[in-house]
């Protein structure tokens, strides 16, 4: 495994250290992880898989918790859902 991982967040390239979470990769570009039911912008709260505020779309699959998903080479991540 290389020491860094390259992926795309909202179409933009990001490089993070190996072992970093998808949440870390998203935070390099934006704090807008998801939109709440009343239209507020939300970002991670608990950092450990409990609150579901960090949900993003990963490789087309919606509602993935970014904080407990490791970043992998070539991932396509979309926030703002």
């Amino acid at each position: 495994m290389s020491a860094t991982v390259r992926l795309q967040v909202n179409g933009q390239p990001v490089e993070v250290p190996a072992g970093a979470s998808v949440a870390a990769a998203v935070a390099h570009w934006t704090l807008h992880f998801r939109t709440s039911v009343s239209g507020e912008t939300r970002a991670p709260l608990c950092g450990m898989g409990v609150c579901f505020e960090c949900r993003v779309r990963i490789d087309g699959v919606a509602h993935q918790r970014a904080c407990i998903t490791p970043a992998r080479d070539g991932m396509q991540v979309d926030s703002h859902d």
């Binding site: 993070v16 250290p17 970093a20 949440a23 709260l45 608990c46 950092g47």
Partner: peptide, 10 residues
């Protein structure tokens, strides 16, 4: 929470 995020590259 922020400690956990930071350890994972935030």
């Amino acid at each position: 929470g922020l400690q956990a995020l930071t350890k994972q590259g935030w």
